[in-house]
Amino acid sequence: MNFLKWIGRTYLICIVVFLYVPILVMVALSFNESQLYRLPIEWSIRWYEALANNSKLHSATVNSLTVAFLSTCLSTMMGTAVALAFYRYDFRAKRLLQILIFPPITIPWLIIGTAMLVFFFWVGIGRGLHAMVLGHVALSLPYVVIVVSARLKSFDSALEDAARSLGASYWQTTLWVTVPWLMPGIIAAALFAFAVSLDQFVISYFLAAPGVTTLPVEIYTAIRKGLTPEINAISTLVILLSMLLLLGVSRFYRFGGRD
């Protein structure tokens, strides 16, 4: 048995190494002096300095953050409301509606992205940041519903009954009892939604208007134009930010774990 455990642990370490090595390589190369990624590495921060002067990346960063912020606010509010409705009430078509929240996860983003492109073009919404917000909200909604519902699963509905019996109205109960109790779940969901939006490439790629892009789209275009360590530098910052956000989520939400 101990032998098996030992194998198991070694194997786990191998998987972690496999998952992280490429990322670490990419990060290490962002500190390499050579434009052509010449090895061995000569340490330098010149590519980070170059970032400071790259106005295209600046506007892409601002765009990314704007879209992420707006879509996080919207999807967190709407998703929490949906999770509450599913928790509180039994109604006809509930099963159906629960399933219908998931297409954004289960249909390839390629298809969703192109479909949005076609439709938004058709009805005159067009491309641009507003279109991206529309798309990102739809993508993060299911995650918000899942995370908030997970928190609601351990909610004791007697708390709401108790508040009502003490004279609190429907809205007082929701705002003073239910929402504060849900707060860790809501924060986790919001961070999650933020990360989803920040990392979203496919949808943004199809909905980006010429000259108005987000970070992932900008990185993709840059890679296709030709590799430079500047891309490593910006990628390093992006991945650092996502990891921090998700560490934040894990403070409030146990991924897949039992409560």
């Binding site: 004791d156 007697a158 708390l159 009954d161 508040a163 003490l166 004279g167 609190a168 109790w181 707060m183």
Partner: peptide, 19 residues
Amino acid sequence: PVEKRDIGMVFQNYALFPN
């Protein structure tokens, strides 16, 4: 509605507000 009935209720698992 419940909140206007002016009742007091004690629940099986007390339902104290944990926050």
